[in-house]
């Protein structure tokens, strides 16, 4: 039986490392499992290798040693089934396509029908109603980011990878996007991995936060976030979890040993 398109996948990272040809070690041996339908957030200092790890899971980078499997298969196989989507820090909208055509691009690439209704629905969902025919150049940074997230959702992916999707916008827009957009992929069964360096964002969005050390990335802490959803702006429990994440980051910065807690 064909897998349900909406059911999330299990991602297994097994002692995967990444060393670039110039000798730069981006990712130290990392082992972790992303559970289906859960949102995992990777946090770590800038340049620690978290985006590299995300790209390895997306099948955009190969592991130097170890392996990355999605439902027991290499990510490139999952790519070909159109079950994987990525939103990058840069919205990466094609400038000659309208918002609607950029969102539809994901469906074209995944060899799905164009489904104008679904595209229109996504445009409304991300708050771009009335901008379907607008070219990216005429949009603000936050609007472009919304369009990019709509594009990532357009194929109803089983694995959604978000590489600092709110990184390139101003703080107010960032908070607004982080408040509104998670509802789009939460509860739908999609396995989601989000990379960020904002601790507050991580705790707000995650079912589980994985703290990475400075380069080469290794797991410093694996912190489950068991807060009720929808999450509130101010919550003492969230504050405690944020402190736990910050402490883990500081330990990593001070060269502390890798320690795995919970998970």
């Amino acid at each position: 039986m064909a897998p349900d398109r909406r059911a999330g996948v299990t991602v297994t990272v097994d002692a995967a490392t990444k060393v670039y040809p110039d000798g730069t070690e981006a990712v130290a041996p990392i082992t972790l499992t992303l559970d289906p339908g859960r949102t995992t957030v990777l946090v770590g200092p800038s340049g620690c290798g978290k985006s590299t790890l995300l790209r390895m899971i997306a099948g955009l980078e190969s592991a130097t040693a170890g392996e990355v499997l999605v439902d027991g298969e290499p990510p490139t196989i999952v790519q070909r089934r159109g079950e994987l989507a990525v939103a990058f820090q840069d919205p990466s909208l094609l400038p000659w396509r309208s918002v609607a055509a950029n969102i539809a691009l994901a469906r074209e690439l995944a060899r799905l029908d164009r489904d104008d209704e679904r595209v229109a629905e996504l445009i409304d969902l991300v708050g771009l109603t009335g901008f379907a025919a607008t070219k990216p150049a005429a949009l603000s940074g936050g609007m472009r980011q919304r369009a990019a997230i709509a594009r990532a959702l357009a194929t109803d992916p089983r694995l959604l990878l978000l590489d600092e999707p709110f990184g390139a916008v101003d703080e107010l827009t960032r908070q607004q996007l982080a408040r509104e957009l998670p509802a789009l992929w939460e509860g739908g069964g999609t396995t989601t991995l989000l990379v960020t360096h904002s601790v507050a964002e991580a705790v707000r969005l995650a079912d589980r936060v994985i703290v990475l050390s400075p380069r080469p990335a290794r797991v410093l802490a694996d912190i489950p976030i068991k807060l009720p959803r929808p999450r509130r702006d101010s919550d003492p429990a969230a504050d405690r979890l944020e402190r736990a994440v910050v402490e883990a980051l500081e330990r990593g910065h001070a060269g502390g040993d890798a320690a795995q807690t919970g998970g």
């Binding site: 790519q79 089934r81 690439l109």
Partner: peptide, 20 residues
């Protein structure tokens, strides 16, 4: 990243040529 969009959809150099 435009090319990555094509790659994560499992499509190759010809699609990248045509679409992007």
């Amino acid at each position: 990243t435009w090319l990555d969009l094509v790659r994560v959809a499992g499509r190759g150099a010809v699609t990248a040529l045509v679409v992007v």
